[in-house]
Design a protein around this nucleic acid. Structure first.
Lengths: 117, 117
DNA sequence: TTATTGTTTCAATATTTCCAGAAACAACGA
DNA sequence: TCGTTGTTTCTGGAAATATTGAAACAATAA
């Protein structure tokens, strides 16, 4: 991922409406939601939301697909993963012990998966 | 962490100079670097850098302490952790299997710690 | 005290982002 | 074809951010 995409992603999440959209889409999962439905739920004008969705897409945090008249937006988990990876990789760069606290704090939040590995 | 702090953190990382400062400080570890030294290394005027450091501090990504004439800046790993936690928690909210790919991708980057847990 | 070094704050300009009305575009049904 | 619904693009003005010279502030030494 280029630094530009990385910064686009961070910039995308630095705005209340877009943060709300991101949270919503993460919760909706891979099937996503039509642009209009997102606008309705968040009570944002459709053209304003469209601009915000474009910003999120530039940061590779959401993807869109057309289904008939609808344009469906869904979170791009690959993009999220790269963001987390960036934060984590730089964090324990060369010093795993510095990362330990991070990982320990991270795993329990993932539905008890820590017990399995 | 408030949404405002969260957005401040994302906004802080959405600018090339600040991204560079963040990377530098993460690598320098807890002892950190004086503001002037950061400015010298990144070839940024000191007053410009000072403004950027203030933005990073507002996002709780760096902390400062005074040592004599120097003001030392160091990465705030707690802040980074909260960022990662936000991204991860929202991501696997209620559906751990959705998170699995994330965590698997995450652990190997941390110096082989995955083998130990 | 004065001088020196390190850093931040102030002030002003340039650039970017945010927002929403209006218009255009896209897909479908009648 | 035309009309309707869903979405994006265009446009312009308001608000926020970036940058840096100059001034102020802080700590120390002479």
């Amino acid at each position: 991922m280029s630094d530009q995409t990385l910064m686009n992603a961070f910039a995308a999440l630095a705005q209340p409406t877009r943060l709300a959209v991101f949270r919503l889409l993460i919760r909706e999962g891979p099937q996503g939601l039509p642009a209009g439905e997102i606008a309705r739920r968040l009570k944002v004008p459709q053209n304003t939301l469209s601009a915000h969705l474009a910003v999120l897409a530039r940061g590779e945090l959401v993807r869109s697909r057309r289904e008939g008249r609808h344009v469906i937006y869904a979170a791009d988990l690959e993009g999220v993963r790269r963001l987390i990876l960036f934060l984590t990789r730089d964090c324990c760069h060369g010093k795993p012990e510095r990362c330990e606290a991070l990982v320990n704090a991270l795993l329990p939040s993932c539905g008890g998966m820590s017990a399995e590995r």
